[in-house]
Design a protein around this nucleic acid. Sequence first.
DNA 1: CTATACATGTAACTAGTTACATGATTTA
DNA 2: TAAATCATGTAACTAGTTACATGTATAG
Lengths: 189, 189
Amino acid sequence: MALEHAILVSLQERSGSGYELARRFDKSFAYFWAASHQQIYRTLKRMVDLGWVGCESVPQEDRPDKKVYRATGEGRAELARWIAEPAEPSAQRNDLAVKIRGASYGDPGEVVAEVARHRAHHAERLAVYREIERRDFPRADGLTGQRLHQYLVLRGGILMQQGLVGWCDELLESLRREHPRGADESGRP
Amino acid sequence: MALEHAILVSLQERSGSGYELARRFDKSFAYFWAASHQQIYRTLKRMVDLGWVGCESVPQEDRPDKKVYRATGEGRAELARWIAEPAEPSAQRNDLAVKIRGASYGDPGEVVAEVARHRAHHAERLAVYREIERRDFPRADGLTGQRLHQYLVLRGGILMQQGLVGWCDELLESLRREHPRGADESGRP
DNA sequence: CTATACATGTAACTAGTTACATGATTTA
DNA sequence: TAAATCATGTAACTAGTTACATGTATAG
């Protein structure tokens, strides 16, 4: 499992509360990972037990107290150990593939509509990621260290979304050729 | 969840035992899904309770009896319903991305070695999938029905592996430029 | 005599999702 | 006055992994 290690990476960059970590996840790991706040709170608790992070209560004016977590020496050692350890390439479970395989047993028009929805989703993701690339990394050549690593993960997100959009395009072309009336929403007679 | 529905697709194509389903999964859904036999047995049991599949014990000579499962009318209806229902694009959780983001906190040489391992894995998958494409689908133009759908899922696998190999290549180039000694195993002085 | 294929399962654990619960402050 | 943001959690459920358990037949 990598959630602990993703949290350790985030805490090495900057200490923070569970809530802050959940928001950072939405932004910075979101290309490849979504974690709910419940999961993060639970995992932080376990990590305290393991000695990987320390926790300090910070009283705030006007707001509920927050618990600030930071990585310990043990946590840093564990992260380094995990990074060096070989890991299985993660399997990409994909529901759309199951729907395609089963297309003969469903409504062809609905399948085309579903693929079109997924295409729109991936194209939108791709546009967002490309905008981040353009705005935050205009000169990628000179990058080093954490900035480079952030950029490289973003590149992974871009390449994956590109592949998915390309696949959806192939799917739409083939499925529409197979069932020309399927997703014709042009209104023509 | 799509495991039930993946099983329904497989059983529509051909009835079979839990064991056979597990093997078919390894072959035919493997581009996007891995399911262990334990998971399949457990899920089949639940599907019998739901009335989606029927089960018949077949005594065999020389071998343990097998239970042959087949999709019921209800199962076929459920599959059609699920195929038409919009689904969220599946998130692709990726441990390698976490390692890249955390590369500054680990051994750079180990990170490069890990990326190289993943590149080799994806390149091998890609070669296998391309060989299947060449051998089983030499003329993709005329395909229709289930053969077409099988081919389209294979195409998805190919595009994903291509994207991953491309990403690994970018990673290797950038990380090796950052740490030239990191993964030099050429033996040169 | 060892490994692989055939054939089915249980038990315990780990990970992830959904729903519920509370309560203050700021912005539209 | 409704929604969003800040802030933390519990409980129940669903899904997936790992380890264990049993037994036959065939191929090398």
